[in-house]
């Protein structure tokens, strides 16, 4: 699990099947389902632990490294 600060949480709603696993196991409770699709409620609070990515069966939520200048 990445502890890096230069990563940010991304979602891919097209792949999300709305199972709710990431929502249930997010330690800071910043994820929710809206119409069966994943939403981040408060990105600032994300601790970038990567648990959502690790347990998402559909690869629909992940930490992406932020490249310089972006």
């Amino acid at each position: 699990m990445s502890k890096k600060k230069n990563v940010s949480l991304k979602t891919n709603q097209a792949w999300c099947k709305g199972c709710g696993i990431c929502v249930a196991f997010c330690p800071v409770k910043i994820l929710e389902l809206k119409k069966d699709k994943i939403h981040i409620t408060d990105k600032e609070k994300c601790i970038k632990c990567g648990l959502c990515e690790l347990r998402c069966p559909d690869f629909a939520i992940y930490l992406e490294e932020e490249e310089n200048g972006q």
């Binding site: 097209a14 792949w15 099947k17 709305g18 199972c19 709710g20 696993i21 690790l54 347990r55 998402c56 069966p57 559909d58 690869f59 629909a60």
Partner: peptide, 17 residues
């Protein structure tokens, strides 16, 4: 080829990853 055909909440994607 993605997204895969598995049902919502199926654990298989986690193992595949």
């Amino acid at each position: 080829r993605l997204p895969h055909i598995w049902c919502p909440g199926c654990g298989h994607g986690i193992i595949m990853r």
